[in-house]
Design a protein around this nucleic acid. Sequence first.
DNA 1: TTATTTTGTTTGTCTTACCTAACATCGGCA
DNA 2: TGCCGATGTTAGGTAAGACAAACAAAATAA
Lengths: 166, 166
Amino acid sequence: MHIENELSESIEDYLEIILDLQNAHKVARSKDIAERMNITRGSVTGMLKNLSQKGLINYEPYGYITLTPDGEKIAREIMRRHTVIKDFLFRILQIEDGKADATACRMEHAMDKATVNMLVNFIDFIDKCPRAGADWIQEFISFCSTNNADEKKCMRCIERCVEQYK
Amino acid sequence: MHIENELSESIEDYLEIILDLQNAHKVARSKDIAERMNITRGSVTGMLKNLSQKGLINYEPYGYITLTPDGEKIAREIMRRHTVIKDFLFRILQIEDGKADATACRMEHAMDKATVNMLVNFIDFIDKCPRAGADWIQEFISFCSTNNADEKKCMRCIERCVEQYK
DNA sequence: TTATTTTGTTTGTCTTACCTAACATCGGCA
DNA sequence: TGCCGATGTTAGGTAAGACAAACAAAATAA
């Protein structure tokens, strides 16, 4: 692994997609990568050389495409970010599934590992803390429609929370 | 305002910075833009022509640089995203100030208006919901260090929450 | 008002990442 | 086994956005 660890968003996308294809079919194929990225096959070849030269994939012309250990490590991390961010957008922020996925796809390049780790902690906390949890998320949804916290509802909500915890 | 509304991240950054400079000094100067973006003055000139041609800034060679109404509208929206995202990273996720700012700077291009609106709602909900609030965020911080919810602490925490609400 | 420094612009080049179109190779089937 | 469609590669081109260095204008100082 080299010292300079800054990869372009494009490269991160390639690695993530190659990992996904590899998981599904053992190896990735140029054509499928092109399809997933909505680019032409010709463009893929260029990037494969680039990735290969960076030591991130195993690549021979006309041969199988697989991630090297270094490449896989990075790909897994990107995929993890994607999963975490999408979960937050979809399950907490109530963003519609497809859009949550597309947005996560962009956000994953903007957040570093440590920041995503804190997001993981936060989601975990919401799921485990008795003051939060699934019913609390439901309250958030209703808060969004009314856009303010109804005092009377709050009292009942807290009581339910206490009840539920016992 | 044109139909095609897709602006590059770079353009969004320029607009945001120009707005900020304009707020501070009435007009933006080429040199200051270059400084803020960490690029050379020569690069700025090219983009100014581009922005001007897109109707986003008022620009004459050697003249004052100001945002047009269209440009300002976009700049304000980007700045708003930045503020909201940074608030979330800093105040909720506990990311250190400088890093929260830098990360927000990248994330603001990945999240659209509607998604940021939901994030605003969520932060608002956390601040207003009696089950959440500042003390709950404190609990999150302690959750992060222990990395699990201590049952006994939970009971006391809920009691404090009820107490506090009365 | 002239001389000097600062600021802004121009020009030509580079890199990244894409495209199209022509060409090469592979793999299955007649 | 040899041909054909699918897949992969090459070559040349484009666009965005940056750089350096030379040049032009403006602002400041003398």
